[in-house]
Design a protein around this nucleic acid. Sequence first.
DNA 1: GTCTATACAACGATAGAC
DNA 2: GTCTATCGTTGTATAGAC
Lengths: 237, 237
Amino acid sequence: MNLKSFETQVAVSTEDICREIFRNRSGSIRIKKERVAVGNLVKIFKATLKLANNKGFHAMSLRDLCAESGMSMGGLYAYFKNKEELLTLIQEQGRAIVARVMGDQLSGIDDADRALDVAVRSHLYLSEVLQPWFFFSYMETRFFNAAEGRRAIDGELQTEGIFSDILQKGIAGGQFAIGDPLLVAAAIKALLQDWYLKRWKYRRRKISVEAYADFVLSLISAYGAGKHAKGANHGVA
Amino acid sequence: MNLKSFETQVAVSTEDICREIFRNRSGSIRIKKERVAVGNLVKIFKATLKLANNKGFHAMSLRDLCAESGMSMGGLYAYFKNKEELLTLIQEQGRAIVARVMGDQLSGIDDADRALDVAVRSHLYLSEVLQPWFFFSYMETRFFNAAEGRRAIDGELQTEGIFSDILQKGIAGGQFAIGDPLLVAAAIKALLQDWYLKRWKYRRRKISVEAYADFVLSLISAYGAGKHAKGANHGVA
DNA sequence: GTCTATACAACGATAGAC
DNA sequence: GTCTATCGTTGTATAGAC
């Protein structure tokens, strides 16, 4: 699986996401016409992600957001009741998409080797398509109140749980030879996060997302988990 | 080398750092008595790191900072000329300490195996002692203006450069068998960052910094760089 | 459904008393 | 060297015209 085939298989454009948001939360959104609402939501989210990822969500004023989105103050407040709800909106939808896409991609896969490959690639490709979303979610999570903060932590642990489940399955089946699946799962998560957090670095070095996926998989495979496990060395050409 | 021996060898208490700041920037600090100034700087930095790491530097108001540090508004402004300078102060000092400590620890070490071990452990132990500092620097870097932002990026690349230099040396000497030192260096950096960014996770799981260091080293060693390189598998007990 | 105008709270920063 | 009082600005949020 490469990025192209992933993209055609999974529909996750900003418009798709905004339509989903509108249908889920039509109660708290004052505008009723779907076409109008979705169009404005796209403008709002694109502007928010651009501004917040540059200077932080807190430093982004709603006046900034008006200028960037081309909407007025009053117009914005038809879509959320206060600034914090805008933050929640973006975060919640992001988490939901990750859970759904990962679940879809992994459903029906029994082999641990194949599951690991699909899980790593799905997460990387998804974060490539939705890079601003992922970056935003990571950076702004800690600004939540206690209740939402706990849900964000659960999200972190849930994604990691996908990987540790696969690893444990592979150990039980005798395919993987590792003794610390939790640590390895945490490491995989850290490497996947680096891809969307330091996107500028990998872009500058002209490393494609497929090449990065290959690297991550070969790294943990050399450690004992993956297709060519038990001491294979993929580092040398 | 473990955390204890590192701590006794390297003096990096908050007070040490504040004394260094005072001596470096006595020009822009209005207070002249070292004892008074250092004491207040300790209060200011402890309060800033606590508040900013909870809710973000921007969301932390200077009135919050007064309450937390026990100082007055006017008192604070004797130590920096505006809020942004406080941000810069913490960041700059953090970068300087990392560069100095890493340089000290690595000086005189020629063997690539040993250098890799020392570099990984030094960085992890330092980030363990100064966790709030590291967390703050990582999270608040992007709020800089263009000029300072570039210096922050340089800092990121510089630390990574330490690792890629060691790796390249090991390859040249025939000790390491990897074909992509830049990617491996980036991965090491990502794993080291995870330690101080997700400190809560590792604390909850009762994983010590020494155990984490062992894990990181064995992971890249299995890939082909490190003491027991060329296919050794450290994952199984 | 969208805009402009405005309320009012909170912010960073400073002047001047002590 | 430190504090209190206060300035002008900017922030979020809303009311009411269109």
